[in-house]
Design a protein around this nucleic acid. Structure first.
Lengths: 242, 242
DNA sequence: CAAATAGTGTCTATTAGACAATATGTT
DNA sequence: AACATATTGTCTAATAGACACTATTTG
């Protein structure tokens, strides 16, 4: 950072949230329907401008999360995804948006936000496939968010953020399958995931569902870095990184 | 992004660069010595404010890179590292900095930048160890940059960005060892890295050094994603992610 | 019992890591 | 020859993936 003789330009800072969750075994992202121009009627990510010039970026993300979903960010996984500042991305003027990725466990259906006129958990697939019309560069944010989640599932304990405080190995497998979009062998998954040191801690309790043998309940262990990583099958492809 | 009845606060945007390279088998970061307050005399990352309100962030990063090092960003690996916007990080006022990570191949010793009064490639170790006094939150940026590089070495072709257009497997090994800070077995490394599909392409040429058998020269292949990944030994540890 | 999910055993091909051995250059 | 680096071979323990099998529940 260098001092300059001229006055540097000031820009508006926005915070946008890619909030992912699992519903009906499919990966969903929280989208609101815009009620005003620009992009009236299009889907958009929840977010907003910095409240005041001294607000911390993370604090702004937590504030928006609470406003839009009523969720306390203390309970959620929340991490910075990146900055999106291409000139022209917002027709109203120069806006630099700091994107955050949040992972939410299964939530009560109604997501009536205070700000959001109309909010819904829409399948991430439909965004990736381009079926939905997203405002601004928000499709890119969702792409990047899903890609981040896919990668971190391999090497971190992120998957548990999709679950409640306790969960079965079957539920965890559903998370991996939904985010990666591929089926996994339950038997191999079962042992592989338990082999990871410090990932899962058995609670001793069991959970019984409508059918089948009751499953042991686990909670997240101390490790946030998974070693060995949970390999994603068929990564064998070239090109495209970052 | 929601429309608001009030005027959102505008802040200054800076771009800071964590430029890594290899010198004398050690990982170095480009630091300049600040000639003005605040933090006069401390080391700082190269960077600066947005030139004008319509400048793209990536363009600003490339511009700063050229100004500080004379390097053409077209030749270099350049990726966004994150945003650093904690209030109070800059005593002059609210500044949100977009950090970029650049990887440079071996460069000519003099790094006389136009802006930088005094620039030097200093060992990343000394920053990590806290030996050097860095301005602002730049120590954190270097930490994050090195950590990013360490991780990407495993799963991407980033290592080749430290090398010239052609390189030997021995040089590549030096990159891995310097960035990870651990020794690797040359024989196992030799084959392991060649097994990665699309990573290395032999040029047919050879390179002879002062001593020892000449080594085959390679260039970077089409793959930017490495599968299987190049596993980093002794990752076996708990806690701390993100 | 049938169906469904949880959990265990086992086999095989592949891989990681250790390290001996060989190849080819310089001094 | 002595030395240094590159490249190849080989052995062993660990691992991934396929899949048969057992266990425990509900209807």
């Amino acid at each position: 950072m260098i001092d300059v003789p001229w006055e540097p330009p000031a820009v508006l800072i926005a915070v946008d949230l890619v909030i992912l969750t699992l519903r009906a075994a499919s990966l969903r992202v929280l989208l609101i329907e815009r009620g005003t121009e620009p992009y009236r009627g299009a889907h958009a990510l929840p977010g907003g401008f910095l409240a005041h010039s001294e607000e911390d970026l993370d604090a702004a993300a937590r504030r928006e999360l609470a406003e839009e979903t009523g969720l306390d960010a203390g309970e959620l996984h929340l991490e910075q995804l990146g900055v999106y500042g291409r000139p022209g991305r917002d027709p109203r003027g120069r806006v630099v948006s700091v994107a955050y990725l949040a992972i939410a466990p299964r939530l009560p259906d109604p997501v009536a936000g205070t700000d959001a006129a109309d909010a819904a958990w829409l399948p991430a697939d439909r965004v990736l496939a381009g079926e939905l019309n997203l405002a601004f560069d928000h499709r890119q944010l969702v792409l990047d968010g899903v890609e981040r989640a896919r990668g971190k599932l391999e090497v971190s304990s992120l998957a548990t953020a999709f679950c409640g405080p306790t969960f079965t190995i079957g539920e965890l497998q559903t998370v991996y399958e939904a985010v990666w979009g591929i089926p996994l062998d339950p038997r191999n998954f079962y042992r592989k995931i338990q082999r990871v040191d410090g990932f899962l801690v058995p609670t001793g309790a069991e959970q019984r569902s409508l059918v089948g043998r009751p499953a042991r309940l686990f909670k997240a262990g101390p490790s946030t870095v998974l070693s060995p990583p949970i390999g994603r099958p068929n990564e064998a492809g070239s090109s495209s990184a970052d």
